[in-house]
């Protein structure tokens, strides 16, 4: 399918058109308890979409259904036109808990290489790709370290590099910056924006933080209710490039923020 040997900007599959992900009538229940109901939305190619909702609303369940880690009890998710049964090749996941999602027995480089190894990428190539991905997140000097020798923010950057090296069409992130301190968090957000700009990947990011969602997104999908459904899908018309201080002091930012806040709070 893909022949580029580097992490380059471009359409993942030769410029096919239409949304990369399509969610139709998605619902999920654990036994009697209904968590998600009647979700319909699409994620466009190259888009950065945040799913935002209060804690416990079922964001993680949604993420698991979207990535094929969990089979939804209703509806379906299409990835590039194909129904998702298991995690597809063109999709990479970044988990919330960096300290648990990296393998402590593998070096930073090996953590990034492992998925490529399993995908059958040749030795030279997978190493080069992994090093490029690590350079992309600014960790070139730490390839030989072990995850537990790094700070939390650096560990999460390794996880992001692992996702990038996998050369996915879509990166799905589950509260990726929730367990780091505020400064690191801002750095990582900007890193994400930069990388996404540079590589042209689609990002679907789940968060409970409204500021983060508005700051990062092209569109925000607000989740609420019990069972959770889509409250609204609103376009974030903030100018690019985004900048932590300037963007967040725009009046429009405040407007959008309170709009989302009301959406997920009011029932």
């Amino acid at each position: 399918m893909k022949t580029q040997t580097t992490l380059s900007k471009g359409e993942p599959d030769g410029g096919a058109s239409g949304p990369i992900m399509r969610v139709r009538g998605l619902g999920h229940s654990y036994g009697e308890r209904e968590v998600l109901k009647g979700l319909d939305f699409e994620v466009g190619r190259g888009e950065l979409m945040c799913v935002v909702g209060p804690s416990g609303v079922g964001k993680t369940t949604l993420l698991e259904c979207l990535t094929g880690l969990r089979r939804p009890s209703e509806g379906e998710v299409l990835f590039d036109g194909e129904r998702i049964e298991a995690p597809p090749r063109g999709l990479a996941i970044v988990f919330q808990d960096y300290s648990r999602s990296l393998m402590p027995w593998l070096s930073v480089l090996d953590n990034v290489v492992l998925p490529l190894r399993s995908a059958g990428v040749a030795r030279d190539e997978r190493e080069r790709t992994a090093r490029e991905a690590l350079a992309e997140v600014g960790l070139s000097d730490f390839t030989g370290h072990y995850p537990w020798q790094l700070s939390g923010g650096m560990q999460q950057r390794v996880a992001i590099a692992r996702a990038l090296a996998y050369r996915p069409a879509v990166v799905v992130m589950d509260e990726p910056f929730a367990s780091v301190d505020a400064q690191t968090r801002a750095d990582l957000e900007d890193l994400l924006l930069r990388v996404r700009e540079h590589l042209g990947i689609t990002v679907l990011l789940v968060t409970h933080d409204i500021d983060e969602a508005v700051y990062l997104s092209d569109r925000v999908l607000a989740l609420g209710g019990k069972p959770a459904g889509i409250r609204s899908l609103l376009t974030v018309d903030l100018p690019a490039p985004r900048e932590q201080v300037a963007t967040k002091s725009l009046p429009r930012f405040a407007e959008l923020r309170s709009q989302v806040y009301r959406l997920i709070r009011d029932v």
């Binding site: 880690l69 090749r89 996941i93 999602s101």
Partner: peptide
């Protein structure tokens, strides 16, 4: 760790790689 199991599933690690790089070291 269930999170690592999800990582393995998410990145489509094959059975051998799962045993070799995940289960045995863990």
């Amino acid at each position: 760790d269930p999170v690592l199991r999800q990582v393995a599933a998410g990145y489509r690690l094959g059975a051998w790689h799962r045993i070799r790089y995940l289960v045995v070291p863990a």
